[in-house]
């Protein structure tokens, strides 16, 4: 359990960094001066060729739908889910529950660093489905 939490934390941290960096329009981003996740992030950048900046994508949850319901990203990109509905939803990997946001209340958001293509759904409302395609 502790391991899962640690992994989750570092995933979120990388997510934050990706978010901050993606917001920077300069070609030479200032080196982030934050904590350990930076190294992990740098390693990931190198591993992916070093020259592509991870991007941040938004998926909105509104009126009981994921919008867009299919999103195509590159490995290491971040997908942020915003719950704009009045009810609680979750975002859970469909086939083995490999990852989950846990219940995401109205007006909350949750981010995921995409590492592989996934089908996902809402366990609370199993009719709601979406897809992340990692190219």
């Amino acid at each position: 359990m502790a391991t899962i939490k640690t992994i989750l934390k570092s995933v979120l941290c990388v997510g934050c960094c990706a978010f901050m960096l993606a917001g920077c329009s300069s070609n030479t981003p200032s080196v982030p001066t934050v904590h350990f996740a930076q190294d992990e992030y740098a390693t990931k950048l190198k591993a992916s060729g070093g020259d592509t900046m991870p991007k941040v994508y938004a998926v909105t949850i509104a009126l009981m739908k994921f919008d867009p319901d299919t999103i195509t990203v590159k490995k290491g990109d971040t997908v942020v889910f915003y719950n704009h509905d009045m009810v609680t939803h979750d975002i859970t990997e469909e086939h083995s529950k490999a990852w989950t946001s846990k219940p995401l209340p109205a007006d909350a958001s949750w981010k995921l660093v995409a590492t592989q293509s996934s089908d996902y759904y809402c366990t609370i409302h199993p009719v709601m489905k979406g897809k992340i395609v990692v190219q």
């Binding site: 009126l63 009981m64 739908k65 509905d85 009045m86 009810v87 409302h125 199993p126 009719v127 709601m128």
Partner: peptide
């Protein structure tokens, strides 16, 4: 109006 999609999702969930 905004409640209708939730009601429709509930209906499909119930049918499942």
């Amino acid at each position: 109006q905004s409640v209708v999609p939730a009601l429709k999702e509930h209906l499909m969930h119930a049918e499942m």
